[in-house]
């Protein structure tokens, strides 16, 4: 009975949405704000990648909220699962190929991750995408050698200080007479690596925080799994 009602609800929702969806003028977005941002962004923010200009400039506080959500999720997982200490033995280390591969991949992934983070204001990519790659760089060696887990203290320091750095850059703008998260520093030449003022610094903070958060989350989940088996 409950299932039937729920299915009816889902079907009705789908039908309703479809009816509205067919009325949309697809491919001709009104772009009131989008148009204005496109014409203003090169001058106001100075990032060649306009999505980055929106993410870190125009909607910077959304990004701060999103970092806080990742932090809250990782903190909550730590709170729920963290107090169980590993009492049983962890999985044995994997074979030579996986271990060597993990060690080889780590520096490569670090370089790629940092490249994507630092070019976030010029090309597709940025702190979130690069941060995920950084998290993978730190987590792959853990998968290869479960007996040497991630150092929680290091992760905690990175996630705390990079998040604080993002906020402090924003507060620096507030206390130099502007608004919170107002772009600071020289805009430079559009398209250069050193351009767009504080944006690359903000993205670096985002990347480090996302990397530390995700690696910490994975480590918590992996540790809990080990202690369960």
């Amino acid at each position: 009975m409950r299932n039937l009602a729920s299915l009816l609800f889902a079907g009705g929702l789908g039908f309703l949405l479809m009816v509205f969806g067919l009325q949309f003028d697809f491919g001709n977005a009104p772009m009131l704000v989008g148009q204005a941002i496109q014409s203003a962004a090169p001058e106001q923010v100075g990032a060649a990648n306009i999505v980055t200009a929106v993410v870190l400039g125009y909607r910077g506080i959304d990004t701060l909220g999103e970092l806080a959500i990742l932090f809250a999720a990782s903190t909550a997982v730590g709170l729920i699962l963290g107090h169980r200490h590993t009492s049983t033995k962890p999985d044995p280390d994997s074979g030579l190929i996986l271990r060597a591969g993990g060690e080889l991949l780590m520096p490569l992934l670090l370089v790629v991750g940092l490249y994507i983070i630092l070019h976030g204001h010029l090309t597709p990519g940025g702190g979130f995408q690069g941060g995920v790659i950084l998290a993978a760089a730190f987590f792959i060696p853990v998968l290869a050698r479960p007996s040497t887990p991630l150092k929680h203290t290091g992760m905690m320091l990175i996630e705390g200080f990079s998040g604080a750095a993002f906020i402090l850059i924003g507060l620096a703008a507030l206390y130099s007479g502007g608004e919170f998260l107002q772009p600071l520093l020289d805009k430079g030449t559009l398209g250069n690596l050193v351009s767009a003022g504080t944006l690359p610094l903000l993205y670096l903070a985002v990347g480090l925080k996302v990397g530390a958060e995700l690696a910490g989350l994975l480590a918590h989940l992996a540790a809990a799994e080990v202690s369960e088996s």
């Binding site: 977005a29 772009m31 704000v33 989008g34 941002i37 496109q38 306009i50 999505v51 200009a53 929106v54 993410v55 125009y58 909607r59 959304d62 990004t63 999103e66 959500i69 990742l70 979130f128 996302v210």
Partner: peptide, 14 residues
């Protein structure tokens, strides 16, 4: 194309 929804989707995915 409109950059704002792309930024919003990035946020929503995270």
């Amino acid at each position: 194309v409109d950059p704002v929804p792309q930024a919003m989707v990035l946020t929503a995915i995270v």
